[in-house]
């Protein structure tokens, strides 16, 4: 199947329009530990809440969505009622074990002015070549705010498919924070339909890739509502023979007057053997909009290394400091101190 398809294709020879994968069919519902805060109702099955009729597009795309649906697993639904602001995060910890192809599907429905933070930690303690699929879909009513934080520290033998998609009503906002620290093959996609006026997407991803690790991303902000805003940031460090493809699309549809979208990528390249591809895309079918793209891609310069050296910090440690800085810049967006500490511990162990 083809996943992470660009909303508007470019030259085929660049091989970035979509990614062809041969994913193993999921054969097991993933086990996970959960801490469900008070005020969140959990319901087994898809199609819940006031926007249940809305069709959700996801970042990995239609073929992946069908592939997951055909596997026959049911999602877990979470509902937050009107005006409920849940202060304690919903924690979900996945310990991916063995050679299974396991799957976890979630649906979040937040009613008017409801707020929720979901923290998902994906890790393993073995070196088996398993596959893990996770899909999060969300529907946000007027003024609702959903934050999803994902931290992934899988071993280098695992394959990880991480798919997100949702619908954002008037004055509602979706925040996504992703930290990618492991797995051999990573496929990340997120699509936000900014349907309502003043709807917003804030997306920040930080990654550290080494050896032969792959990270294939597709992030799409679909601006439909007036004065909608999107902000996509990607911070990364690449070493060894790591391979990264970043697709970031800001799509201004007819009628989204007054909308603003920005995407910014900051990649630190440590070795010459890495493969780094970036596809920034701004599509515009509306006149009164602002779209911006910026990228900083390169190696640390000699003046930086000399300054570090003059304080007794050798090249390798200087790179480590920079790597940490890139991850911290995104990790610091997380409000939950426990999660920030967890990330710091993961980085200390790495």
């Amino acid at each position: 199947m083809k996943i992470n398809r660009l909303p508007a294709p470019t030259w085929n020879r660049l091989k970035v329009n979509a990614t062809e994968v041969n994913a193993v069919r999921p054969n097991k519902a993933a086990g996970y530990e959960e801490k469900l805060p008070e005020g969140v109702d959990k319901i087994h099955g898809r199609g819940i809440g006031p926007l249940s009729d809305v069709t959700i597009k996801t970042g990995l795309g239609e073929e992946f969505d069908k592939f997951i649906e055909d596997a026959g697993f049911k999602p877990e639904g979470y509902v937050v009622s009107d005006e409920e602001k849940i202060e304690t995060p919903l924690y979900q910890t996945f310990d991916v074990k063995g050679n299974d192809a396991s799957v976890a599907l979630f649906d979040y429905s937040l009613s008017d002015n409801a707020e929720l933070t979901v923290i998902q930690i994906v890790k393993d303690e073995d070196n088996e070549s398993g596959v893990f699929f996770v899909q999060n879909k969300y529907r946000l009513s007027k003024g609702a705010k959903l934050t999803i934080v994902q931290i992934q520290t899988l071993s280098e033998s695992k394959e990880f498919y991480n798919d997100i998609g949702g619908y954002v009503s008037d004055d509602a906002s979706f925040n996504l924070i992703q930290i990618v620290l492991g797995a051999k093959n990573n496929y990340y996609g997120a699509n936000a339909c900014l349907a309502g006026k003043n709807s917003a997407l804030n997306l920040a991803v930080a990654y550290s890739l080494k050896n032969d690790e792959l990270l294939d991303m597709n992030y799409v902000a679909d601006h439909n509502g007036k004065n909608s805003e999107s902000d996509i940031k990607a911070n990364g460090v690449m070493q060894g023979r790591a391979n990264k493809l970043f697709r970031g699309t800001i799509d201004f549809h007819k009628g989204c007057a007054g909308s603003k979208g920005a995407e910014l990528e900051d990649v630190l390249l440590i070795d010459d053997t890495i493969v780094n591809k970036t596809v920034p895309l701004i599509l515009c079918d509306e006149e009164d909009v602002e779209g911006a793209h910026g990228a900083t891609i390169g190696r640390p310069d000699e003046s930086f290394l000399f300054y570090m050296g003059s304080r007794g910090i050798p090249r390798e440690e200087a790179y480590e400091l920079l790597k940490r800085a890139k991850i911290d810049a995104v990790a610091n967006l997380i409000e939950d101190e426990k999660t920030k500490t967890y990330i710091a511990e993961c980085l200390d162990r790495a």
Binding site: G309, S310, R311, G312, P314
Partner: peptide, 11 residues
């Protein structure tokens, strides 16, 4: 290298 010189005690 600067890091080695620094470690010997030069600033």
């Amino acid at each position: 290298s600067p890091d080695k010189i620094s470690k010997k005690g030069v600033f």
